[in-house]
Design a protein around this nucleic acid. Structure first.
Length: 216
DNA sequence: TGGGTGATCGACGTCTGTAT
DNA sequence: ATACAGACGTCGATCACCCA
């Protein structure tokens, strides 16, 4: 029987992949610089054997400190950032928010949850997809802390996600409404439509004519 | 073809952190 | 205090590649 992949398994697999990629990049940089493992190891304060292990990803827990030292020796800088994944642990409020929107859809429109972006290796996914005459991606937020940042993230996903339009679905809490009103006009270019027009289109079985923001 | 160089691998010892 | 595991360094053997 097929079992669902655990978060920890996926994270470990991701870790191995990253270590492998970093090792390859270090090797390319070192070879490109004409340096031996021993020379790089001496400069970085580790043995040539350790340099080789890191390059070949033979170390399960290579430290950021070691990577920084190696990259510095090779005249590079290493940068680590966190990005939203495709399958986070969702809370009940998030699911309920999506369900509220789904309840406003005309029966003729299709509804799919957790739709991955159509890019090999890209872990991002749309929270939901409304399928009818075209594809409308739904990105739900229960708590609006930085609307501009969320809008930027969604715009990037729209660029890569091959959808016709995106609806940013925001829970209608007092705090969210206040946060949104402070920056709504700044988001107007990328998300021109508001709640009323979008809900009216979806209830009529039509896709919205453009991207927009729904507060529900 | 032989020597030099670099990379890889395995064995072994040391050090450090953790569990009991 | 002791045992254990993991990370790391050292050493030697081996292999591949380059060059005179």
């Amino acid at each position: 029987m097929a079992t669902r992949e655990r978060f920890i398994d996926r994270a470990q697999r991701s870790g191995r992949r990253i270590v492998s990629v970093v090792g390859n990049e270090l090797r390319d940089a070192r070879v490109g610089s004409g340096l031996s493992q021993a020379a790089v190891g001496r400069a970085a304060g580790m043995s040539h054997a350790q340099v080789g292990r890191i390059e070949r990803a033979r170390i399960s827990g290579v430290s950021v400190d070691q990577l920084c030292r190696l990259s510095a020796v090779l005249g590079m800088e290493i940068s680590v950032r966190f990005y939203p994944g495709s399958d986070p642990l969702r809370d009940a409020a998030h699911a309920a928010l999506l369900e509220r929107l789904r309840g406003r859809l005309h029966p003729s429109l299709g509804w799919r949850l957790e739709v991955p972006l159509p890019i090999e290796g890209d872990r991002r996914a749309w929270d939901a997809l409304v399928v009818g005459a075209g594809r409308t991606a739904i990105e739900a937020e229960t708590r609006l802390t930085d609307a501009q940042a969320i809008a930027r993230k969604v715009s990037l996903k729209k660029r890569d996600g091959r959808v016709d339009r995106v609806v940013l679905l925001i829970a209608g809490t007092i705090g969210n409404r206040r946060a949104l009103s402070a920056c709504r006009e700044g988001l107007r270019l990328d998300f021109p439509l508001d709640t009323g027009e979008i809900l009216a289109s979806l209830a009529a079985g039509q896709q919205p004519r453009a991207s927009g923001i729904v507060v529900l």
